[in-house]
Design a protein around this nucleic acid. Structure first.
Lengths: 328, 328
DNA sequence: CTGAAAGCGCTAACAG
DNA sequence: CTGTTAGCGCTTTCAG
């Protein structure tokens, strides 16, 4: 149906080998020849068949982004951002991108194999055996927003500790010393990371962390609101609450509203991720900005390095920033 | 590197043709043979090479979802939902999915051609020439969340009119007769559709629509808030405002807050899309739920029908629902 | 600089 | 039910 290299060869009067060269190594054919070939191709609406090329070259230039997350995938704004960034970067570097969900990762690995994926970016809570499976199939692996100590895999993560330090520092500047944290069950890695960062930073600032001021909840507005209600209902209520992410923080805002507590006058609230909800709620939410764009880009870059046998740092940490808004 | 059909053939003692059959038409080989082949394949970790298969069959089972939208793509929750749904459906029907942005649609069309995409789902403001380009390349096209009168292309859209009727009907039930609309510039199609639906529905209910009560704004919270401030600052302020989508409605909520207007007591607010922000804002937002999941699924189904030369309805309308929450 | 020819891994007649 | 064989469209030595 579509024109092939043979059609172009016939019309331009050169061999198929030359046509092939013209498209993959333009500078290895004479100017005049190239001209002729391009003309013929133009007329025939010829465009090289990537499948056939992959077949002949034994490489596909195809990579995958696998979101390892139970429920929402691309629906989670955080991953949507990373994904978007990966998409752009992949296009720019002429790689085909396959996006998939790891609902069934064994299947995903199988698919990756027979679809000839050369490398995969694992986002979120990847499991060790998942990684091994890919490696066994000779598929390069990079972790994004996750780490796997003991495994020899490059990973790109955000500086959760740095972000937390900015957040706590900011609250102290605002005169809040009694700071609580509601760590939603976001993902094992992120939740743990932020939780530990909180303890560490509080320690560094010489602040006490009352165990009762650190709470867990589901990563939903309602669950967060309930948890915040408990926290704020007590006599020794905290002066500030850090949400494990923006959704949790939005829940805190809701709780404050129900209790008639004014934010930020009577309570400061800080979120994590700097997602779009920050601008929607009232007051707008101060939040730690995670640079998803950068994380995605670096993920692709690391994968490229791996595929080209170049040097590739094991751990890349992307700085976080604080976006101050009305809630503090 | 990976085992091929030849390796399996050798190990199992049957011809490559039989190995091939075993994987594509299992019931066309004897039980015992199939057994042998699968065993050998298991041992060799063989998995059919989709590229080679595509090459031989002259079909790729590959489809694309192209988001035709200037700025945000997958970052727009609305499209993320459609995309997610398309992903699931595509996997289920064993099709490979390529997701891309139509920043440069000519390039996209070229890519689609040489990557051997068989059909494409166009989401958002697709242009006529874009469609022609695909058709010229013999690539099947389906429109999602968009229509193109005069073009012979199946499309799947939400029932904006029905949604609007639910919204307005609900407001009337709440005793609001003086209803305004702020139609953000969401997309030419959606904006127009909702705007027209509003006029029509108001007419059907025998309500006047003061031209000053229909406003335009950018689809950002801030722009919507500004516009709402003007609308609400007037003496004859409306009793209810319909936002073109949830972001716009959130802006209205912000404006009400600034003016000290209580929602829903003094002002009712309704959004469109039923996105996650609805649950985050205070009060929670009543919104018209658009069934993105269904839209995505149907988009894939229509494309399949097209690719299989089956009957395929030109226009599919997906019903909308009203989700009543605190803002009304 | 260009051409001839041998695959890449698999499918699909066509025979047997 | 199974095997033989001729491609699918392109790349890549190897000669010329």
């Amino acid at each position: 149906m579509n024109a092939t290299i043979y059609d172009v060869s016939r019309l331009s009067g050169v061999s198929i080998a030359t046509v092939s060269r013209t498209f993959s190594n333009p500078d290895r054919v004479r100017d005049a020849t190239r001209q002729k070939v391009f003309e013929a191709a133009e007329i025939l609406h010829y465009s090289p068949n990537a499948i056939a090329r992959a077949m002949a070259r034994q490489r596909t230039d195809k990579i995958a982004f696998l979101i390892c997350k139970r429920d929402a995938t691309i629906l989670d704004e955080f991953y949507a951002r990373i994904c978007e960034s990966i998409m752009r970067r992949a296009i720019r570097s002429d790689r085909q991108l396959v996006i998939s969900t790891a609902a069934d990762w064994a299947q995903a690995a199988g698919t990756a194999q027979n679809k000839q994926v050369e490398g995969v970016i694992l986002g979120g809570s990847a499991q060790a055996d998942m990684v091994s499976e890919f490696q066994r199939k000779h598929i390069a692996v990079v972790l994004v927003n996750h780490r796997m100590p003991g495994f020899d895999i490059p990973c790109v993560v955000s500086d959760e500790y740095g972000g937390m330090r900015l957040a706590v520092g900011h609250l102290l500047q605002r005169g809040r010393r009694d700071i609580a944290m509601i760590a939603g069950r976001i993902s094992p890695y992120i939740t743990g990371e932020r939780y530990n960062a909180f303890l560490r930073v509080m320690g560094e600032y010489g602040l006490e962390t009352d165990a009762r001021h650190i709470r867990m909840c589901d990563p939903t507005v309602e669950s967060a609101a309930q948890t915040a209600l408990e926290l704020l209902g007590r006599k020794d209520r905290p002066a500030a609450i850090l949400g494990g992410n923006d959704v949790v923080a939005a829940g805190v805002l809701k709780a404050a509203h129900r209790l008639g507590l004014r934010v930020p006058e009577e309570l400061s609230v800080v979120g994590f991720d700097d997602s779009t909800v920050c601008g929607m709620v009232e007051p707008e939410l101060t939040s730690v900005h995670i640079d998803c764009r950068r994380i995605g880009e670096l993920g692709v870059d690391r994968l490229h390095a791996l595929l080209n046998d170049e040097d590739c740092p094991q751990v890349t940490v992307v700085p976080a920033e604080l976006r101050v808004r009305g809630s503090t």
